[in-house]
Simulated assay, not measured.
Amino acid sequence: MVRTIERRATQRALTAAGLGGILAAGIVGISLSTPASPAAAASGSTAFGVRASNTVNLSADSGSLSNPTVSATGISTETGAGYAKASVSSLTVGGKAVGSVSASCKQGVTTVSHSGGDQDTPFFHVHFGKSGGPSATGVTVTITDKSGKVSETVRAAGVSCDKASTQPPTGEPPTSKPAPPTGRPTGVPTGAPTSKPGKHPTATTKPKTAKTPDKDATPVTPKPGHLAVTG
């Protein structure tokens, strides 16, 4: 009898919030599990995609979820040394669109971004996380009954990380270029060549011309049979 009263009270709360489809079959406390790719968590870094608990239990770290209570697409998670990231392209809880949300953590500092805004109604509450700390949940959605009792809790895009000696990936190629060499080559020859080119051949020596006898030279005495030459 008590269980029947609790079930009806939960249904009335969800119906009042416009979320009657969540328990259209009148099922309370059912646990459902969707295939999830666990994040390759490095030491000190964690990430999750979507977690739902209480009335319906669901979890997924990649791909999508399709359920009357929670549906989500574009779920992805990534972790590394000093780095974690989780994102959900679209999230719908109880038929109400929450929007997209993502959270990242680098060297112990988180950043949260989202498309929607906080919501607070008597039965439906949406609160997005804050950036700055070493851990953050992108968005937390709760459904309550008239008395304020939580019927369903959905969390999406959760991350945490520590500082690491290895720098996290930036997603961009390095912009620094290697510095050009500034030194001069040391193998420049400093000595003069040891072999000298041969000298050009000298000009041919001109033959010496015979000198004419001096005019005042002593005449040769004619020998017998020679005629003397007189001036």
Rank of each mutant, 00 (worst) to 15 (best):
G44P: 02
V70H: 04
N67A: 03
T46L: 07
S71D: 07
P35H: 07
S37H: 11
A60G: 11
P35L: 14
V50A: 08
S64R: 15
N54C: 10
R51W: 12
N57M: 10
T46A: 15
S37L: 09
T34C: 05
A36N: 09
R51K: 14
A40K: 05
T46C: 07
L65A: 01
N67T: 03
S66A: 09
V70L: 01
A40L: 08
T69C: 07
A52S: 15
A41Y: 08
A39F: 07
S66M: 00
N67K: 04
N57Q: 08
T55E: 09
L65K: 09
A52V: 04
T34V: 12
D61R: 12
S43M: 12
G44H: 04
T73V: 02
S33Q: 14
P35G: 12
I75M: 07
S71E: 10
F48C: 00
V56H: 03
P35Y: 10
G44E: 04
R51T: 14
V50Q: 08
S37G: 12
V56F: 00
A52C: 07
V70Y: 00
G63C: 03
P35V: 07
A60T: 13
G49T: 06
D61F: 05
L58C: 03
N54V: 15
G49S: 05
L58I: 00
D61W: 11
G63N: 02
S53Y: 05
G63S: 02
A42G: 11
G44W: 03
